[in-house]
């Protein structure tokens, strides 16, 4: 192989790699992705090492409902993700921990709670979560195989 062919072939390969990476980025960012969940906060609905499919279209269009399970960036650590259920939308009255007690969810925020309320760090601890932090809505569980199920209410 001559020098020229090597350059041509490697640049074509580079092009394919870049293209694939960009398409993957767009799909993950705008359509949906798979997430591995860890931790006890959503038991018994979700358990550690379940793999979930989340879609990113509903949160972008602000069509979230009460009862949806969502993934979001953790308000106290943006590098961490959390997976909780929406229990309150703007204007709803919710019950938090002391000192504030019951409060109304402000505009542009949601109230997130884990299903395992005794063992979950959620809105009752850090207050309402801005909707801008929500990344995806959980659609279904894909792993383990014998527990494949839809996780939406409708």
């Amino acid at each position: 192989m001559s020098y020229k062919t090597i350059v041509r072939k490697s640049s074509a390969l580079m092009g394919y790699v870049i293209q694939t990476a960009c398409i993957t980025h767009c799909v993950i960012e705008y359509v949906g992705d798979f997430v591995l969940c860890t931790g006890p906060s959503m038991e018994p609905t979700l358990e550690t090492n379940n793999i979930l499919f989340t879609e990113h279209i509903t949160p972008r269009l602000q069509r979230l409902r009460r009862g949806d399970i969502v993934t979001a960036k953790c308000p106290t650590d943006p590098k961490q993700n959390i997976c909780k259920r929406i229990t309150g939308l703007p204007g709803d009255k919710v019950k938090g921990y002391l000192p504030r007690g019951s409060q109304v969810v402000p505009r542009g925020h949601v109230w997130l709670e884990g299903d395992n309320s005794d063992n979950s760090k959620d809105s009752r601890m850090y207050g309402p979560v801005p909707q801008g932090l929500i990344r995806g809505r959980v659609v279904c569980r894909v792993w383990p195989l014998h527990r494949i199920s839809s996780l939406t209410d409708y």
Binding site: Q62, P78, K79, P106, R107, G108, H109, P130, G132, I134
Partner: peptide, 20 residues
């Protein structure tokens, strides 16, 4: 991209009051 910001930086952010 790694959430490293400094005091005095001008940043753009999603409004906490209106996610759009």
């Amino acid at each position: 991209s790694d959430y490293q910001i400094n005091r005095g930086d001008i940043i753009s952010l999603v409004s906490p009051k209106d996610p759009n």
